[in-house]
């Protein structure tokens, strides 16, 4: 168990003023079996009207609008997450989560992933966890972490063909491979201890448990992770979606800081 202090900051800067801005944000972590969120503050700017709801996957969605002219838009989410409360999230019965067994536009395999899949020879393994471990092991060898080559729109097959990408791509490829084995699995967006960008990983269903795998870092998901949202692929977990009036270009800055906090005697929280 850990006590993690987090700050998630996102800022969009527009090249000119925009108005009638409608937005939907999935940037707020919620309580799960693994984590409990306390002392959270959420700030969305400029002045706006914001509502909250949770979507079909249980993710918190903030949605609202800003009508006045503005040339930047962003949010600041701060709080404390108590993590590692359990080893895994309890999962719904299989018939309710069937949707996570099937490929999406983003995860649909092409020739390259298919070829890789055949070489994996997953029939050797019994449980979903063993298969997922084998997938993660070979994927981290076959794929390189390089920023700036892929983007938000890149599919699993495109990324895999290119041979390198970021956490989103690792996750999509792993989902694609697990789904070929009909293992229910989902995309997770969140944060990880350290400073930098937001992170993404996958969870696979094994006997009523969602088990977290981080193929980018080649490790199991533990108490240094904070989940924000999950879905079929990255499109269900978009941090920010917006439409507005104005023909502009935009620049996005993201800064995530997650650090462990200790109590006054400098002990770890138990």
């Amino acid at each position: 168990m850990k006590k993690l202090q987090f700050g998630y900051h996102m800022k969009l800067t527009f090249s000119d003023y925009v108005s009638n801005h409608r937005f939907s944000l999935k940037c707020v972590p919620h309580d799960t079996d693994l984590q409990k969120i306390v002392n959270m503050t959420v700030e969305v700017y400029p002045d706006n009207v914001t509502s909250e709801d949770s979507d079909a996957y249980g993710n918190i969605t903030l949605f609202g609008y800003t009508n006045e002219l503005h040339d930047c838009f962003g949010f600041d989410v701060k709080g404390i997450a108590v993590t590692g409360k359990e080893e895994y999230e309890k999962a719904d019965e299989l018939h309710k989560i069937g949707i996570f067994k099937y490929q999406t536009q983003k995860t649909k395999p092409g020739l390259r992933i298919l070829e890789f899949y055949q070489k994996l020879d997953l029939k050797r393994f019994g449980s979903a966890t063993d298969k997922a471990t084998a997938i993660m092991d070979s994927l981290s060898e076959a794929f390189q972490y390089v920023q700036g080559i892929t983007d938000m729109e890149t599919t699993a097959e495109e990324a895999f063909t290119g041979g390198s990408g970021v956490c989103q791509d690792y996750a999509h490829i792993m989902l694609s491979l697990c789904r070929m084995e009909r293992i229910p699995c989902r995309y997770v967006a969140g944060m990880m201890m350290g400073e930098g960008l937001s992170h993404a990983w996958v969870e696979i269903w094994d006997e009523h448990k969602w088990r977290g795998f981080d193929p980018t870092n080649h490790k199991l998901v533990g108490d240094e992770y904070i989940k924000i949202s999950n879905g079929r692929d990255s499109t269900d977990c978009l941090v920010n979606q917006g439409i507005f009036t104005g023909n502009v270009s935009q620049m996005q800055e993201i800064n995530v800081v997650v650090e462990e906090v200790f109590d006054e005697w400098n002990n770890r929280i138990n």
């Binding site: 979507d55 996957y57 069937g98 099937y102």
Partner: peptide, 29 residues
């Protein structure tokens, strides 16, 4: 909602989840 008809095997799940008619966004509504 509860998806009992899938649980009870009356309709194979791929007819629901692999088709384009099922909208996951509506789940739970």
């Amino acid at each position: 909602g509860d998806k009992h008809i899938v649980r009870d095997g009356i309709i194979p799940e791929e007819f629901i989840y692999a088709g384009s008619g099922y909208l996951p966004q509506c789940d739970g509504i």
